[in-house]
Amino acid sequence: MSKNSVGLAIFLLIIGNIVAVFSDALIKTLSADGAVFQFVFFRQLTAIIILLPFCLFNRAENLLVGLKWHILRGHIWLFGAIFMVLAINSMPLATANAIFYAAPLLMLPLALLLFQERLTKTTILAAILGFIGVLIVIKPTEITWAAIFAFIVALTMALNNILVRKLPKQLSVFQVLLLTNIVGTPVALALAIWEGRTWDWSAMLTAAGSSGFILIYAGICVMVYRSIEANKVASAEYTGLLAAVAVGIVWFDEIPDLSMALGAAFIILPLIWLAKNEAKQNKLAKLEAVN
């Protein structure tokens, strides 16, 4: 992806976040007292099965380059998945997703600390307005364990997206995703065994569907954040909230209230403003280059 393809990157992130909501919806169909660690292990396992055919045609001699970063991201991804299951099964789908979308705001200081990315007033304001929208949606009158779990998910999402920059450029998206899941599988299996629940293989189909959807999102994140500065496109992550509202209404009869509509406006409108401002800046830069 070209480093100037900000518009395309934003479009891909919008698609990825919409697709990711369906992964969350499948998780919400699980029994509230189901085996969490077992389901997360099934997700890891089915992700590997899905990805292997796509990796067979890629050269693999450099697969172990940057292994420490794969191990770090793989375990961040694993624990994020655990807390995601706990959060989604404890609150409405749109509310959980609203908290997940604190991730773009968290990415800004992380990008500054890890990569010294320059934060403009525009990107900072857009992220702050988006986060205000998140707060309006969740109406934080009290802190619950479910909300804490959801915020941990947001932190793991932010870290994973930022750390994409540390991965070797020669690896394909499929190889990156495969390694992310492989390195976390031993810990996932150990946790599932420690959980001590009877193995319920019927959950494997749900896990496979959830893995398929989330892999599309994760692959898009790898493509985008490898080539575009996070502060320019991270606000596009917020748009999945609208999909979460729609899926919550249709699938789970979760009717949003006025605060959801107001919060969504705070989330979406800054994104539109940010995209238009970026397009304007790119146009001015091209004109200056011509002159």
Rank of each mutant, 00 (worst) to 15 (best):
N181D: 05
P168I: 06
N277M: 09
L12D: 07
N231M: 13
A25M: 11
T156W: 01
A230T: 11
N58W: 06
L63M: 15
I249T: 07
I182Y: 03
I27P: 00
E195H: 07
L52W: 15
V137E: 13
I162E: 02
K28R: 13
M223I: 03
M223W: 01
N277F: 11
F79N: 09
G133T: 04
H75W: 05
K276P: 03
D253G: 10
N181G: 01
L105Y: 00
A126G: 07
L191S: 10
K276C: 09
L171R: 06
G248Q: 01
P53Y: 07
P109V: 00
A203D: 10
M157C: 10
A81R: 14
L86Y: 14
K121L: 08
F79W: 07
L51F: 14
T46D: 15
I124K: 05
F149G: 02
A25C: 10
A60E: 13
W194L: 12
P104S: 05
A147K: 10
Q175C: 00
H70S: 04
G212P: 01
K169A: 08
A94C: 05
C221R: 02
I267V: 09
M157Y: 15
T120N: 15
T95Y: 10
T239H: 04
A218T: 07
A81G: 15
T185C: 05
I152D: 13
L135R: 11
N89G: 10
C55A: 14
I216N: 03
F41R: 02
A150F: 05
L167I: 15
L106D: 03
A154P: 03
I15P: 04
G196H: 09
L64Y: 00
V173H: 04
L129E: 05
W201F: 11
A9L: 09
A264W: 07
I249R: 06
I14S: 10
I148R: 04
P104H: 06
L51H: 15
F83T: 13
A9G: 15
V65E: 13
